[in-house]
């Protein structure tokens, strides 16, 4: 606020929002910066506080503590101007089901004092896909089409910052891919995008990501940076009897963590000594597991997330 230079993008400092008169903390001490034109991902499981954070930044919630500046405008004092520049696509499909595709678009254009025609250049690529259904009621569209319509409605007033709350939840794999391609195109037009998702595999499609858990940001970096920062060795493990293998691996005294990851188990040890690894192999032999595959692998974002979550918990219990 005190800075004279107009700052684009998003910058928030120490945002905290509680509900039920302070009994439930949804987000706590959130600070981060999104550069103008950046595609920024909020990655975290359900209930991590992603939606609350987006609602604070889109002026739907007033934070208890902290400030945020979106596209150079303060979310507390310059609400009116901000609402003209922000595009918001809520997690739940929330357009008028009883209005047609065209009527929905027109309605939201009018809300922002503009017309569909004036903004066709921005939404054209997406609009052509839903145009064949323009006279169909929004409630009768398929999931992927609904999502495209919602994106069009969020873009209809040429926002400079776009907030997308779990846009790909409940959408099929092909539509998810298409959706991220659309986001990449929008980014090229200079729109700053903040997107939240519970899918860790989508994280690599963002410029930078924030890993968020229980209302706190654990880490902010580029996806590669987060992967590179994974401090320990990671092993993948497979055998014929997966469940008993998981139980045995978790029971091994040198195991730090072990969880199912696709058809493999992902495993880390408390120390990174070769002797521990040898001891573990012998242990598996003793347990008479068959068709054992054991190899060192590169971590994924999900592994990093699990690791960070575990070490945060250990920090908490230690203090």
């Amino acid at each position: 606020m005190e800075e004279a230079t107009v700052e684009r993008g998003i910058r928030c400092t120490a945002l905290t929002k509680t509900f039920n008169k302070g009994a439930t903390t949804a987000i706590e001490d959130i600070s981060f910066t999104v550069e103008p034109g950046e595609l920024f991902g909020l990655i975290g499981p359900d209930g991590a506080g992603k939606t609350t954070l987006i609602r604070v930044l889109t002026t739907l919630y007033v934070p208890d503590i902290g400030q945020a500046v979106v596209d150079g405008l303060d979310i507390a004092t310059e609400v009116k101007a901000l609402r003209n520049r922000v595009g918001y696509m809520p997690g739940k499909f929330s357009l008028y089901q009883d209005l047609t595709v065209a009527e929905n678009l027109e309605f939201f254009a009018t809300l922002f004092n503009t017309t569909v025609q004036a903004n066709m250049d921005l939404i054209h690529d997406i609009y052509v896909q839903i145009a064949p259904f323009r006279d169909r009621r929004a409630g009768q569209l398929s999931g992927g089409m609904k999502q495209k319509l919602a994106l069009c409605c969020a873009l209809i007033h040429k926002p400079t910052v776009l907030f997308l709350d779990e846009p790909t939840t409940g959408v099929d794999v092909v539509s998810r891919k298409e959706f991220w391609q659309m986001l990449a195109k929008l980014k090229k037009q200079g729109i700053t995008i903040l997107v939240s998702t519970p899918y860790m595999d989508e994280a690599t499609l963002c410029d930078r990501i924030a890993l968020i858990q229980e209302g706190r940001i654990m880490k902010i970096d580029t996806p590669q940076g987060i992967l590179d920062a994974f401090p320990i060795r990671l092993f993948a493990l497979k055998a014929k009897a997966t469940y008993s293998l998981l139980c045995d691996a978790q029971a091994f005294d040198g195991t730090q963590s072990c969880f199912a990851f696709g058809e493999y188990l992902h495993l880390t040890f408390l120390d990174q000594e070769e002797s521990t690894i040898r001891r573990f192999k012998d242990y598996l032999k003793d347990k008479k597991h068959q068709e054992v595959v054991f190899m060192e692998v590169k971590p994924s974002i999900e592994d990093c997330f699990m690791y960070l979550m575990k070490s945060e918990k250990q920090l908490k219990t230690a203090s």
Partner: peptide, 13 residues
Amino acid sequence: EIGTIEQINVSPI
């Protein structure tokens, strides 16, 4: 209930 009010509320109306 259906969530459309949020879309209205983020608009400058």
